[in-house]
Structure formats: C-alpha cells, structure tokens
Amino acid sequence: SLTLTVRGEEAVRRWYKWAQAHNLEVEVETHGDEYVLHIK
C-alpha cells in the first residue's frame, strides 16, 4: 500500500489512472488544496 500527498486535481487523476491500470483501489482525502491518496 502507498500513501501520497499531491497538489491539484490533475495529479490526482494521473495517479487514479495509474492505480486502475494496476487493479488497485484508491481512497482520496482532501485537505484544502492538497490531496492525500491511499493506494491499496
């Protein structure tokens, strides 16, 4: 499992696509303009 902090929706989309390509689940938490992604 992997936890990432990114800024901006574009980065979130990029990681989301990456995770889907690897059959992984993604949980997204929003903290202001930062997003915490939990990839499992």
Rank of each mutant, 00 (worst) to 15 (best):
16 Y>H: 09
19 A>P: 00
28 V>W: 07
13 R>D: 11
26 V>K: 00
18 W>H: 02
29 E>W: 10
35 Y>L: 06
15 W>S: 01
14 R>M: 12
32 G>A: 05
38 H>N: 07
18 W>Q: 01
31 H>P: 02
8 G>A: 05
9 E>G: 06
31 H>Q: 10
22 H>G: 02
29 E>G: 04
12 V>Q: 03
2 L>T: 05
2 L>Y: 09
10 E>F: 06
17 K>F: 08
29 E>I: 12
37 L>E: 00
7 R>W: 12
26 V>Q: 01
6 V>R: 01
5 T>Q: 07
35 Y>I: 07
12 V>N: 02
14 R>C: 15
11 A>I: 07
7 R>E: 05
22 H>L: 09
12 V>I: 08
16 Y>T: 15
14 R>A: 12
7 R>K: 13
35 Y>R: 03
1 S>M: 12
12 V>K: 06
26 V>Y: 07
28 V>F: 07
34 E>H: 14
29 E>Q: 09
38 H>Q: 06
36 V>A: 02
19 A>E: 00
7 R>N: 07
20 Q>S: 10
28 V>D: 01
17 K>P: 01
30 T>Y: 12
31 H>S: 10
39 I>N: 00
32 G>H: 04
15 W>N: 00
40 K>P: 04
39 I>K: 00
25 E>H: 13
35 Y>N: 03
18 W>S: 01
40 K>D: 04
3 T>R: 12
37 L>V: 09
12 V>T: 03
20 Q>F: 08
25 E>G: 05
24 L>T: 02
12 V>S: 04
23 N>A: 07
32 G>T: 04
17 K>S: 10
22 H>E: 04
13 R>P: 01
23 N>W: 05
28 V>R: 02
35 Y>G: 01
17 K>G: 05
20 Q>D: 07
10 E>C: 11
16 Y>W: 10
31 H>F: 13
24 L>A: 07
13 R>Q: 13
31 H>M: 11
32 G>L: 05
32 G>D: 08
21 A>M: 13
10 E>T: 07
20 Q>N: 08
38 H>L: 09
28 V>I: 13
10 E>M: 07
8 G>I: 03
33 D>R: 05
9 E>V: 13
23 N>M: 08
22 H>M: 10
25 E>I: 13
33 D>T: 07
15 W>L: 10
25 E>P: 05
6 V>I: 08
16 Y>D: 03
37 L>K: 00
21 A>Q: 13
34 E>M: 14
27 E>N: 09
9 E>M: 15
39 I>M: 06
7 R>A: 07
23 N>L: 07
29 E>T: 12
25 E>A: 10
11 A>C: 15
24 L>D: 01
36 V>T: 10
16 Y>A: 09
6 V>P: 02
27 E>F: 14
13 R>T: 09
17 K>W: 10
19 A>H: 01
37 L>A: 01
19 A>K: 00
32 G>Q: 05
21 A>S: 10
28 V>Q: 03
28 V>H: 04
29 E>M: 08
30 T>N: 13
5 T>L: 11
21 A>I: 11
30 T>G: 09
26 V>N: 00
17 K>H: 10
5 T>M: 10
40 K>N: 08
33 D>N: 10
7 R>F: 13
5 T>G: 03
7 R>D: 05
24 L>Q: 02
27 E>V: 14
39 I>Q: 00
20 Q>E: 14
36 V>D: 02
7 R>Q: 12
6 V>G: 02
1 S>V: 13
25 E>R: 11
13 R>I: 12
35 Y>P: 03
13 R>M: 11
36 V>H: 07
27 E>M: 12
8 G>M: 04
23 N>D: 08
31 H>K: 15
32 G>W: 03
1 S>W: 14
9 E>L: 14
1 S>L: 11
28 V>M: 10
32 G>I: 05
33 D>F: 06
22 H>R: 08
27 E>S: 13
7 R>M: 10
7 R>C: 15
5 T>E: 04
4 L>P: 02
3 T>I: 14
17 K>A: 14
9 E>Q: 10
6 V>S: 01
40 K>F: 14
3 T>Y: 06
5 T>F: 07
8 G>C: 09
21 A>G: 05
39 I>S: 00
34 E>V: 15
38 H>S: 07
13 R>F: 07
4 L>N: 02
11 A>R: 06
26 V>G: 00
38 H>M: 07
16 Y>M: 15
28 V>N: 01
37 L>Q: 00
38 H>P: 00
22 H>D: 02
30 T>W: 09
21 A>D: 13
11 A>P: 02
12 V>M: 15
23 N>Q: 09
9 E>A: 11
33 D>E: 10
39 I>D: 00
6 V>W: 01
22 H>T: 02
24 L>G: 02
24 L>S: 03
38 H>Y: 11
2 L>Q: 04
34 E>P: 02
31 H>D: 10
19 A>Y: 02
37 L>I: 14
15 W>M: 06
39 I>W: 02
29 E>P: 01
19 A>M: 03
40 K>A: 07
1 S>G: 14
11 A>S: 07
16 Y>L: 15
20 Q>I: 12
8 G>T: 15
24 L>R: 05
36 V>L: 08
20 Q>L: 13
18 W>P: 00
24 L>M: 14
3 T>A: 05
15 W>V: 11
15 W>I: 14
2 L>K: 05
27 E>T: 14
31 H>Y: 12
32 G>K: 05
12 V>D: 00
22 H>P: 00
10 E>S: 08
23 N>E: 07
4 L>K: 06
17 K>E: 15
7 R>G: 05
30 T>Q: 15
3 T>S: 09
14 R>S: 08
6 V>K: 02
9 E>P: 08
7 R>T: 11
25 E>L: 13
23 N>F: 10
3 T>L: 08
28 V>P: 01
38 H>F: 08
25 E>T: 15
26 V>D: 00
29 E>N: 05
32 G>E: 07
20 Q>A: 12
32 G>S: 04
11 A>E: 13
13 R>G: 07
20 Q>W: 09
21 A>E: 14
28 V>A: 04
6 V>T: 02
16 Y>C: 15
23 N>G: 15
26 V>H: 01
25 E>D: 09
19 A>S: 03
38 H>T: 14
37 L>P: 00
36 V>Q: 05
10 E>K: 11
34 E>G: 08
4 L>E: 02
34 E>T: 14
6 V>L: 04
18 W>E: 02
39 I>V: 05
13 R>V: 09
24 L>K: 04
16 Y>S: 08
14 R>K: 12
5 T>K: 13
40 K>L: 08
24 L>N: 01
37 L>D: 00
2 L>V: 09
32 G>C: 06
5 T>H: 15
4 L>I: 15
27 E>I: 15
27 E>P: 00
20 Q>T: 11
30 T>F: 11
22 H>A: 04
33 D>K: 06
2 L>W: 14
35 Y>M: 05
8 G>H: 06
10 E>Q: 09
22 H>F: 06
19 A>L: 10
27 E>K: 12
30 T>A: 15
23 N>K: 09
17 K>Y: 10
32 G>P: 04
15 W>R: 01
31 H>E: 06
39 I>A: 01
32 G>R: 04
2 L>I: 13
21 A>H: 09
31 H>A: 09
24 L>C: 14
22 H>Y: 06
21 A>T: 09
16 Y>Q: 15
18 W>M: 02
29 E>R: 09
3 T>V: 12
37 L>M: 06
40 K>R: 13
16 Y>F: 15
3 T>K: 10
1 S>Q: 13
8 G>N: 10
30 T>V: 15
12 V>G: 03
23 N>Y: 08
4 L>G: 02
1 S>P: 08
6 V>D: 02
36 V>M: 06
14 R>N: 10
3 T>M: 09
20 Q>P: 00
35 Y>S: 03
16 Y>E: 14
19 A>T: 03
25 E>K: 11
30 T>C: 14
7 R>V: 12
4 L>S: 02
14 R>L: 11
16 Y>I: 15
33 D>P: 06
5 T>P: 03
15 W>P: 00
33 D>W: 04
33 D>L: 07
9 E>R: 10
8 G>R: 03
38 H>R: 12
24 L>V: 06
24 L>E: 01
36 V>C: 11
30 T>R: 15
12 V>F: 15
11 A>L: 10
5 T>W: 06
23 N>I: 03
